[in-house]
Simulated assay, not measured.
Amino acid sequence: MTSRRARRLGPAIRARRAELGITLHQLSEATGVSRGTLSRIENNTLSTSLANALAIASALSVDLSELLDEPESQLVRAEDATRYTDASGITRITLAQPSPGIQLLRYEVPAGAASTRFAAHRGRTQEVLHILEGRLVFETEGDSHESHELGAGDTFTVRADREHRLSNPGEEPCILHMLTVSPR
């Protein structure tokens, strides 16, 4: 189970329990899981076993998958987005992960910066890059080395199942959005 799905379990249990008007004590009696443990699960301070999760779902009259399903909408506030800056100064911000295998990223590549090689993704994975500002060179490694220079407004779709790297040959920062789509 992904950590995002695990974080969704606690609030989903609490919401379903509230919907049914069931107290923690009643849920504890129905599942054999202590009230304290249930409270910690609902507050995402404790992960639970599959057996406990199934017992809780059964007591709440739902399938476990219903408690883990993606919400119909998802909001990521700017201050809550996951941010990583590497040694070259390139910043990667995770804007959204709407479902497994799909990720929307924002890259900020300083003038003259170059990434280390990105490892090959799983077979048939594609990346779609859209350059918002500046210039970028996208290079693939291996037997069929390719290099593509992109500018503001350009959109580039590429298989990402080979090593690749990004660099900014310009004198201004490059800002881009990247959509990564991996087959399930």
Rank of each mutant, 00 (worst) to 15 (best):
L64G: 00
L20Y: 01
I41W: 06
D69M: 05
T45V: 12
T48S: 15
T48K: 05
N52V: 02
V62N: 10
I13K: 01
L38D: 04
A59T: 01
Q26E: 14
A57K: 10
S65P: 03
V33E: 10
L50D: 14
L27D: 03
S61R: 09
R8W: 12
E29S: 04
E19A: 06
L27R: 01
S34T: 09
S49N: 06
A6K: 06
E42Y: 06
R35M: 15
A78F: 07
T45E: 08
V33Y: 11
G36V: 02
A30F: 06
D69Y: 05
E70F: 09
S73P: 05
L60I: 01
I41L: 11
L64V: 14
R77N: 09
L60C: 03
A51P: 01
E66F: 13
L50V: 10
G36C: 08
T45F: 07
N43G: 09
A57R: 04
S34Q: 00
A57E: 10
N43E: 15
A30K: 14
E29H: 07
H25M: 09
D69W: 04
A57V: 08
T37Y: 12
L60G: 01
L27P: 07
R14G: 02
S34G: 09
T23C: 01
S65N: 10
A55G: 06
E42K: 00
A81G: 08
H25L: 11
L46V: 11
T37L: 12
T31K: 08
T37F: 13
A78G: 07
S73R: 11
Q74E: 15
E72H: 05
L50M: 12
A53E: 09
N52M: 01
V33Q: 03
A51M: 10
A30N: 08
A18R: 15
D63W: 03
L68Y: 01
V62M: 00
S61H: 13
A78C: 02
L67Y: 06
L20T: 15
T37Q: 13
T31G: 04
E42R: 02
N43C: 12
A78W: 03
S58I: 02
